[in-house]
Design a protein around this nucleic acid. Sequence first.
DNA 1: GCATTTTATGAAACTGCTTACATCGTTATT
DNA 2: AATAACGATGTAAGCAGTTTCATAAAATGC
Lengths: 336, 336
Amino acid sequence: MTIYDISEKAGVSIATVSRVLNGSSNVSEKTKKKVLDVINQYEYTPNAFARGLGLNTMKTIGILCPDSSDLYLAKAIYYIERKLRANGYDSILCCSGYDLETKKSSLNLLITKKVDGIILVGSSYIYEKDTDNKYICDAALQVPVMLLNAALDAPNVYSVVSDDFTSMYEATLQMINSGVKDPLYFYNSTSYSGKKKLAGYRAAMESKKLLKSGNMLQLYQGSHEDVPAMAEHLSKLAAKGVIFHGVIASDDTMALGAMKYAKENGLRVPEDLAIIGYNNSMLTDCCDPGLSSIDNKLETLCQHLITTLMGVLNGTEMPKQTLFSGELIKRGTTLD
Amino acid sequence: MTIYDISEKAGVSIATVSRVLNGSSNVSEKTKKKVLDVINQYEYTPNAFARGLGLNTMKTIGILCPDSSDLYLAKAIYYIERKLRANGYDSILCCSGYDLETKKSSLNLLITKKVDGIILVGSSYIYEKDTDNKYICDAALQVPVMLLNAALDAPNVYSVVSDDFTSMYEATLQMINSGVKDPLYFYNSTSYSGKKKLAGYRAAMESKKLLKSGNMLQLYQGSHEDVPAMAEHLSKLAAKGVIFHGVIASDDTMALGAMKYAKENGLRVPEDLAIIGYNNSMLTDCCDPGLSSIDNKLETLCQHLITTLMGVLNGTEMPKQTLFSGELIKRGTTLD
DNA sequence: GCATTTTATGAAACTGCTTACATCGTTATT
DNA sequence: AATAACGATGTAAGCAGTTTCATAAAATGC
């Protein structure tokens, strides 16, 4: 069933059918009804490819993320997909892995598929070296590129970021003020937001003259979810004689590893060991006491990201970078 | 840059360029190289819409799932996306929610987008009443429909299922044999696999003459992730005088709720309370002791699903239904 | 009541690619 | 050497829409 069949059965030209289909004005009520009746009768839907060819868009946004099964990224993808669809767009999902080369090729694939815009989910897409970020600039030459929790100053690239520095700064300060003078900081990524978080911890510790370089520990290179590994790492540290009464982790999974360590070693949480996680994920409810964690308002970020993207696609001038503040959600693993 | 530009610059016809592009034979090495050079020089990529129109496919598979942020579904989506892409297909992701009407419209949307096939992720798409499943049969009239962890006997519908009945049967038996004569069963979904799991528990309990109707409890209608709610629910049961020394849950989240309950009430796990979860997710590592859980070989299921889909798309005869067995992974929450 | 504007409609060009068919030069067959 | 078969290439007809432009019809102005 094509537009020709419909036009024939309705006794009008294909142009008129097209106008009805696209809600164009300049169609009399009478013919409109006539055409609509035929369309409904035959359950006709216009061919998306032909439409795409004519309009040069299929109303599709590419979502690129390193690992869609990651708790936090999955949540982001979920919000993004829902909000895109509410705006009449579909999402094509592409998992790129953490490796630069596969990121590049995934990004190109999305462009080849003629998406209207691309959303890079997570901060792992931005590299230290500017030359490594060229692949994003190249993509932005074709379609607007949105960054979630990362920023890059380049034409046609827009960023929506949570203020990880301040969040971590304040969380660290809170822990210090609650009496913990030696909190360890654990991270596994040195990505855009990873660096900000680390800097926040560092700044807070420095402001209280408590910073020791050995207090900042990278568990993994890249991103991993491994609760037992974190517990084990802490055990080894303790065995080495490192003394600590607090753990601040750059994600909830590692914080849960600290919980496990505390449980295994008979430490009371938070009295003997205070713990703060990051992302305020469902994991915060998975332990006892509940895990205090920093909420970076993911849904708000995503909402804003989509709003911005829609604006850009409409040709509206939009802010190139937006920053939202996070918030420490206190549960049972922190002292007052 | 179009195929016309390339053909002109290479001094050949567009047909020849197209042949080179599609790796068709019957192009002399000389012209092939000539065309390829021009293509590379101008970084030409064929227009995907035009291609789609001509070939009537854009090599895209629709993935429908109720909630892509669900731990288990997110994992499934991840596997599926990766394997699809390894086969040269892209995925358009669509979150439908749990409501039948939105499922219907989401499914139609995918078909409108002219995907080559549709994968329904999770068992919530299959309903008790056959009339409620008609929307799937309708979709299957257009493109092959693959069901993950659900089955429907209909033309052009293929199912890949884990043997939840047996898994749950054996897990329940294991718990009984370990000495727990009164395990409670918790579920929140009466979907396809939800029913199988429940039946497995029921069969095992009946075989030992231990079944009591009050032992099977539905925490929520539909699917939810709520650890504290589960803990609270158990507290209330205990307060009412219900006696139980084991909990079998139809997902890990609820099992974790049982862990929380045990911890809050000073119960030893597994001595006072044995616990078995389902899905063998990362949550099993998030508590101490580690949660015993049923692994239903999700990656294997996904692999098989994609293999089947690819076969179907190639016109090969493929099995309409495949069943894989699961396995209880024993960690610390079960007795021997 | 005639000129002018507005509204409704259709014809045809256009989007960029695939492919069936035609053509032509070149080997292989007898 | 004539003919058949084949390989390489081009021509042109799809694919199924959108949209510009022309035109006819209706509504408005004076």
